[in-house]
C-alpha cells in the first residue's frame, strides 16, 4: 500500500539570506499513523510543516516531492491544492490568537471551511461547526461561536483552531506546536483532546514540537530534525530507550537526566 504522505528530498532555501533551512528531508506517513517531529528551535520544524501544504512565505524556495494521496502537492495547480487544504489535509498552528481573524466571529471562521469547499450551505455549516466546537470541549458552544477571538481564552482559541481543522474529517492533521502557547494544565487538556480525536477519526497525525514529553505521549513514531535533516526515525519506545544520533541522545537526556546517568 502506498503511504498517505511521502516526502522525498525536500529542500527549502532562503535565497535572500543565502542559507538552507531544510536540506533533503525524507519521511513517510501511513494512514492513521501518529508521527512526531522533534526539533530544537531553528531546526526547521515549522518550515517543514508549512512546506508540506505549500504555505511557505514567498521569501522561501522549496524543491523536492511532497506526495499526498497520490498527488505531488508541490506541482499541483492552485485550485487543486486548495481542494486538498482544509479538506484532506488540515493544519493547526502554534499561536491561536494571531492564527484567528480578529474581525470575524469564531463560529463563522470554523463554518467557512465547509462553505468554502462547497460541502454545506451556510446554515448547515454553522450547525456542524457549533456541534464540533461542543465536542472539542467548549462550554456553551452556541454562545462561544458568536464571540470574537479576543473574547476567548487561549485554550478555547486552540479548540476553535482544532475544530476548524477537523470539520471536514481530514485524512492527515498537521499540528505545529499546538500547545506551546498554552499554560501547562490547558496544554494537557488540548493534547488529550488531540489524541481522542485522532483515535476516534482514525486520521494520521503529524505533530511538530520541541517538547519530547508532548510527542512521546501522543505519537507512535518519532523523527528527530536537526540542521535541516531527519537524523533519526524510530518507534517512540525505541528512540527513548536507545537514541542513536548524538543530537537525539542529547534531547532524550534532557528529559530523563537522572535515569540515563544511573
Amino acid at each position: 500500500m502506498n503511504p498517505l504522505l511521502s516526502v522525498q528530498d525536500l529542500h527549502v532555501d532562503a535565497p535572500g539570506e543565502g542559507r538552507s533551512i531544510l536540506r533533503g528531508v525524507h519521511l513517510t506517513l501511513d494512514a492513521g499513523e501518529t508521527v512526531g517531529v522533534l526539533g530544537t528551535s531553528g531546526s526547521g520544524k515549522t518550515t517543514l510543516a508549512l512546506a508540506l501544504l505549500n504555505l511557505l512565505p514567498p521569501a522561501l524556495r522549496a524543491r523536492g516531492r511532497v506526495e499526498f494521496e497520490g498527488h505531488d502537492l508541490r506541482t499541483l495547480n492552485h485550485a487543486a491544492l486548495c481542494a486538498v487544504r482544509g479538506r484532506r489535509c488540515a493544519m493547526v498552528f502554534q499561536e491561536p490568537l494571531t492564527a484567528l481573524n480578529p474581525r470575524q466571529r469564531v463560529g463563522a471562521q470554523v463554518a467557512e471551511v465547509a462553505t468554502a469547499h462547497g460541502e454545506h450551505d451556510a446554515a448547515r455549516a454553522m450547525r456542524s461547526a457549533i456541534d464540533l466546537l461542543g465536542r472539542t470541549g467548549l462550554t456553551d458552544p452556541g454562545e462561544r461561536a458568536q464571540r470574537f477571538p479576543h473574547q476567548l481564552s487561549g485554550g478555547e482559541r486552540q479548540r476553535v483552531l482544532l475544530a476548524m481543522a477537523l470539520l471536514l474529517d481530514p485524512a492527515l492533521l498537521i499540528a505545529d506546536e499546538p500547545t506551546s502557547a498554552l499554560d501547562v494544565t490547558v496544554q494537557a487538556q488540548v493534547l488529550q483532546l488531540l489524541r481522542e480525536q485522532q483515535r476516534a477519526r482514525g486520521m494520521a497525525l503529524l505533530l511538530v514540537s520541541h517538547d519530547l514529553g508532548v510527542l512521546a505521549t501522543t505519537c507512535r513514531r518519532l523523527l528527530v530534525l536537526h540542521g535541516g535533516r531527519i537524523v533519526e526515525d524510530a518507534p517512540t519506545p525505541q528512540l527513548l530507550a536507545a537514541p542513536v544520533h548524538p543530537h537525539a541522545r542529547a534531547l532524550v537526556d534532557t528529559v530523563r537526566p537522572a535515569e540515563r546517568r544511573a
Partner: peptide, 16 residues
C-alpha cells in the same frame, strides 16, 4: 497579508 490568520485562511483551502 503577512499575518498568521491569513496563513490559517490559506490552510483552510480558501482561494486567494
Amino acid at each position: 497579508l503577512g499575518e498568521d490568520y491569513i496563513r490559517t485562511a490559506r490552510a483552510k483551502g480558501l482561494g486567494e
